[in-house]
């Protein structure tokens, strides 16, 4: 199948996660499918924070969930710590599940409102039979302390008694309870107030260091991504456009879409004029994506070749990859 290339994979560096040719389809009606993730390959090294950015509907959440095999992807492989989890079934798959955990944007509704906080965090420990009740209770308290909540105060309360930021702390405690190696964070701070955002972002950083985690950080906020990530993957309509370190990407975006996306972020400095590079319109429907380069319907530099030939990832700088026939030159 027409992928977007794999030149950017660092297979000799023993990545924690290797995703190749991943395809996730949703049924639209009896006859047609939409490929929300349309042949994506990437890897994540141990200790990295890989950010996935792109407009609403481009497939970020779908990609994140497919790594956890929720639901199982229609094509491609996901290799975690040397094990191809797309090939696992039944108990074998169940056994690797604790290694990858996910947290969501809407923390409050992702927690069971009927349960007390201690039971919310204890639940995965209990299901996976991690220790006696007494041992688990100590672990729950330790986890609450780690995420900055006072166990004495919060143990017996229920999610609706907490603010969005506190609920996100609880869901982080729950996610790290089983000592995962990889944490997929889907817009973890998008629903939070600005003053709380920074606290949760710092907490994720602390958790990463304390528990040796590797992070996949899904976000549409490019400034947040710059602050937290070590590598950024830009997605458009189910495909990869560009991959680079945040400093590289923001200073020298090579894909026309990344460039427009970055230019659209308003700069908090009234002395700086508003940038005029604009993407007009909205992404086309993924049900019937454009041929060739999927961005061509909104790209000012599109040529005939862009309509017929899908661009493959090429290296334009050290560790900087772009899928474009006519990359932006700086």
């Amino acid at each position: 199948m027409a992928g977007s290339g794999k030149l950017h994979l660092r297979l000799d560096s023993d990545p924690l996660l290797i995703v190749q040719d991943l395809v996730v389809q949703y049924k639209v009606n009896r006859k047609s499918f939409v490929s929300a993730v349309a042949g994506i390959s990437f890897d994540v090294l141990r200790g990295e924070t890989l950010a996935i950015v792109g407009e609403s509907g481009c497939g970020k959440s779908t990609l994140g969930k497919a790594i956890l095999q929720l639901p199982r992807p229609q094509g491609g492989t996901v290799v975690l710590d040397g094990v191809d989890i797309t090939a696992l079934e039944g108990n074998d798959l169940r056994d690797v599940r604790p290694k990858v955990q996910m947290i969501f944007q809407d923390a409050i509704s992702s927690l069971d409102p009927r349960l007390q906080v201690k039971n919310i965090i204890d639940e995965p420990l209990k299901v996976w039979k991690k220790g006696t009740a007494a041992e688990r209770s100590i672990k729950v308290d330790n986890l609450l302390n780690s995420v900055g909540l006072d166990p004495v105060v919060v143990r017996d309360r229920r999610p609706y008694e907490f603010s969005g930021g506190q609920c996100q702390r609880i869901s982080i405690a729950r996610a790290i309870a089983l000592d995962p190696v990889l944490l997929v964070c889907d817009e973890p701070v998008s629903a939070l107030d600005v003053s709380i955002q920074a606290q949760i972002l710092n907490l994720l950083q602390d958790m990463k260091e304390e528990f040796g985690l590797t992070l996949i950080f899904i976000s549409h906020d490019l400034a947040v991504v710059k602050a937290v990530s070590t590598r950024v993957l830009v997605m458009y309509l189910g495909k990869i456009c560009e991959m680079a370190t945040p400093d590289d990407l923001y200073a020298h975006p090579a894909h026309h879409y990344s460039r427009a996306l970055i230019a659209a972020v308003p700069i908090p400095n009234p002395e700086v004029g508003v940038d005029k590079i604009r993407v007009t319109g909205e992404p086309p429907s993924p049900v019937d994506p454009p041929t060739g380069c999927r961005f061509r319907t909104r790209c000012e530099s599109a040529s005939e070749r862009c309509a017929t030939e899908e661009p493959q990832l090429q290296e334009v700088g050290l560790g900087h990859f772009v899928a474009c026939h006519h990359p932006v030159t700086n």
Binding site: V194, S195, Q197, A198, L201, A223, A227, P246, Y250, I267
Partner: peptide, 14 residues
Amino acid sequence: SIPRLDQSSGQRLR
């Protein structure tokens, strides 16, 4: 406390 695009990456937020 608000992350900015014009700051270099990897800094701890206030």
